[in-house]
C-alpha cells in the first residue's frame, strides 16, 4: 500500500506541473497573440480614450509581461481565476455554472460509445470477413465524419422532420440524446476497433480454449472471458477519450445550442476574453490530469503486475 501512496504522490506532483504548464501556455498564447489586446477586446465599437485607458489598467496591460504573469500566478494559487471581461462575472462562477451540462454530455457520450463498441466488437470479432469489413468501414466513416455535419443530419431527420427531439437547448434527457449520439459516434469507431483487436487476441489465448473445452457457449466465452481482457487497452484509452470528448463538446454544444463549457470557450475566444479562456484551459487541464491519474490507478487495480513491479 505505501507503494501505491508513493505512486499517487508522485503523480499528483506531476499533475501540478502539467496544470502549471497548461496555465502558462494559455496565458502566454493569449498575451503574445498579435495586436493590441485592449483594442481587440473593445473592437471597433468606438471606444473613448478614457475607456481604453480604464480597460488597460483593469486588465493590467499597463504593466510589463513578467509582472502580469506573476500576478496571474499569485491569483491562481489562491484559486482565483480573475474576472470575465465580457460577462462581468468571476470566471470561477462562469465555469461552475456551465460545467454540469458539459460533464453530463461527455459522460453520456462516453458510456454510449463504449456500450455500442462492445456490442459491435463482441458480435463481429473473428467472424466472417464480409461482416467484419462492412462494420469496420462503417466505423471508419463515423470516426472520420465531422461532428457538426453528423449533428445537422441528426437534427434534420429527428428534430426538423420528425419532432422527436428539440432543435436547440433542452437540458433534460430529451435534449441530451442527439448531442450525445453525435459526440459518441466519433469515439465508437475507435473503441470498437481497439476492442475487436483485443478480443481476437484473447480468443486465441489458452484460457479461451479451456473455457470452450469445458463446454462454455461461444457468447459466454466472449462476454465473460475474452471481453474482460480486451477492455484493458480501452481503459488506457479512456483518459485520452474523455479529453477528446471535452474538446468535441465545443462543436457539439454550438450546433445544438446547448449550454456548457464548450460554448463559453467558443464565445470567449472570439471576444478575446483572456481570463475566461485561461480559466477554461486550467479547469480542463485539472480534469484531464485527474482522469488520467484515476485511469492509471484503475489500471493498477485491474492488472496486479503493475503494483508489484515497483514494490
Amino acid at each position: 500500500m505505501p507503494a501505491t501512496l508513493r505512486w499517487l504522490g508522485r503523480r499528483l506532483i506531476l499533475a501540478a506541473f502539467v496544470v502549471f504548464g497548461a496555465a502558462t501556455a494559455a496565458f502566454a498564447a493569449m498575451n503574445l497573440m498579435p495586436g493590441d489586446p485592449v483594442l481587440t477586446i473593445l473592437g471597433s465599437t468606438n471606444p473613448t480614450p478614457a475607456l481604453i485607458a480604464q480597460v488597460r489598467s483593469d486588465l493590467g496591460y499597463d504593466e510589463p509581461f513578467a509582472v502580469r504573469y506573476a500576478e496571474f500566478l499569485g491569483r491562481l494559487v489562491h484559486g482565483d481565476l480573475g474576472q470575465s471581461y465580457q460577462l462581468r462575472e468571476p470566471v470561477t462562477e462562469v465555469i461552475t455554472g456551465q460545467l454540469l451540462p458539459t460533464a453530463e454530455l461527455a459522460l453520456t457520450a462516453f458510456v454510449l460509445a463504449l456500450a455500442v463498441a462492445a456490442v459491435l466488437a463482441v458480435t463481429t470479432a473473428g467472424r466472417r470477413p464480409a461482416v467484419r469489413r462492412v462494420v469496420s468501414a462503417l466505423e471508419l466513416l463515423t470516426t472520420s465524419s465531422p461532428g457538426f455535419w453528423i449533428g445537422i443530419l441528426l437534427l434534420t431527420f429527428l428534430s426538423f422532420r420528425i419532432h422527436l427531439f428539440p432543435a436547440a437547448g433542452g437540458d433534460g434527457v430529451n435534449g441530451l440524446v442527439l448531442p450525445a449520439i453525435t459526440l459518441a459516434l466519433g469515439m465508437t469507431g475507435v473503441f470498437s476497433q481497439v476492442l475487436r483487436a483485443g478480443l481476437e487476441r484473447a480468443l486465441e489465448e489458452p484460457y479461451a480454449l479451456t473455457a470452450r473445452a469445458r463446454g462454455t457457449g461461444e457468447t459466454a466465452v466472449r462476454t465473460r472471458h475474452a471481453l474482460r481482457h480486451a477492455l484493458i487497452p480501452v481503459l488506457t484509452l479512456s483518459g485520452w477519450a474523455l479529453g477528446t470528448l471535452l474538446s468535441g463538446a465545443v462543436v457539439v454544444e454550438t450546433v445544438f445550442g446547448r449550454r456548457g463549457i464548450g460554448r463559453v470557450m467558443a464565445t470567449a475566444v472570439i471576444g478575446r476574453d483572456v481570463p475566461t479562456v485561461t480559466g477554461v484551459v486550467i479547469v480542463s487541464a485539472v480534469f484531464f490530469t485527474l482522469i488520467n491519474i484515476l485511469v492509471d490507478g484503475l489500471y493498477r487495480v485491474i492488472d496486479p503486475r503493475l503494483r508489484q513491479e515497483k514494490a
Binding site: 445537422i152 434534420t156 419532432h163 432543435a167 436547440a168 450546433v255 445544438f256 445550442g257
Partner: peptide, 19 residues
C-alpha cells in the same frame, strides 16, 4: 429569446415549429 448560433439549426427550429 433563445440563442441558437448554428444557422441551419436555427432555421430548422423555425420550420419545424419549435420557435
Amino acid at each position: 429569446f433563445q440563442f441558437i448560433p448554428e444557422n441551419s439549426a436555427r432555421l430548422g427550429a423555425l420550420t419545424s415549429g419549435q420557435v
